[in-house]
Write a protein that binds this DNA or RNA. Structure first.
Lengths: 175, 175
DNA sequence: TTTTATTTTCAATAATTATTGAAAATTCAA
DNA sequence: TTGAATTTTCAATAATTATTGAAAATAAAA
């Protein structure tokens, strides 16, 4: 068994483990396992890949690849590319992990937190009456706190994004 | 229709909406809908509640309530209480939204991120060989970046926790 | 235009995850 | 101890979510 073979086995094993773990992480966070696995494959690929290559690599259906890539693009963590003189579409993943994180945080906030905040805003102004005072106060306290929290999280997210910019600049400087 | 009735309808409607939204938010984040709904009911209740009351309130089975409460307690966002001379157990939710958030962030980090970080640490030190250089480099770059990111997130989380402490202190001061 | 390569959609199905409900276990008073 | 009140467990089932695969749509070449 040659050096090349040993090396390749090691690489493939590491790659496989990474794809599996990343997929598990994705499904724990409410992103479909396949979507996360496709992202993992693209993260590890130095070159953009076609849908067919992804199908082969992960052993999944064409339809699934198509849908998952669509979602990854909607989430802003993958892009389509075209090669001159070729009909096929190529896909690549956003590889800056800070960008991925801020992108995902943004999307989730928009899709999931916003409806809750809307509802809370409307509850906060509930009519004032003497009756069921403690219940109403409990609800207003909780909704007020959640709103307060959401605002602070937003400012934190902003800090996070600006930190990411600095980090990115630093990386470029070092090159 | 009396004032009391109007008020109660409004409150119940608001409560119902809050429970539904909170449940949806939970399921989007990989926590079971029921678990989140139970948390919502407890958040709105000025008094600790029994399993039976939760069953009635949400119209779900005894077993489900029992399992969900167990999970909420494991996540550190609810606690059991006993009333003197009563056999029943009472439950209440952690109502400080900052504590809930840091608690959940902590748990998730431990359960989901840690296995990925372990794997990445082991990949980072992969054997050095000339062959498949670009692939290995890609993997090492990505895993290095993810590790780097995780470390920065940790420090951010710490800042977050300390900010929460200050915020909590401020709240107490105002009382 | 027609043909061919490629991608997308979506109804059917598979896989996963949540929930029930009744039996077993626990806890405490008598 | 026994028995009543209460909680927990878990196999069966329901509900939800992901995946397939083939037909329809699209886009470029002939």
């Amino acid at each position: 068994m040659s050096y090349l073979c040993v090396m390749t086995m090691k690489y493939d094993e590491a790659k496989h483990r990474f794809i599996q773990q990343w997929g598990a992480l994705g499904s724990a966070w409410g992103i479909s396992r396949t979507m996360a696995q496709i992202q993992a494959v693209l993260l590890l690929s130095p070159e953009p890949m076609t849908a067919d290559e992804l199908m082969d690599e992960l052993g999944i259906s064409r339809g699934n690849v198509s849908m998952s890539l669509k979602s990854l693009i909607e989430w802003g963590v993958a892009t389509k590319e075209y090669k001159a003189g070729e009909r096929k579409e190529y896909f690549k993943a956003e590889k800056d992990i800070y960008r991925i994180a801020t992108q995902v945080a943004h999307e989730r906030r928009k899709r999931e937190l916003e409806p809750v905040l809307h509802m809370l805003e409307s509850i906060k102004d509930m009519d004032d009456q003497e009756i069921t005072k403690s219940k109403r106060e409990e609800m207003q306290k909780i909704s007020g706190d959640i709103l307060d929290f959401a605002k602070k999280s937003d400012s934190l997210l902003k800090k996070f994004i600006s930190a990411e910019k600095n980090w990115f600049l630093n990386k470029i400087m070092k090159l």
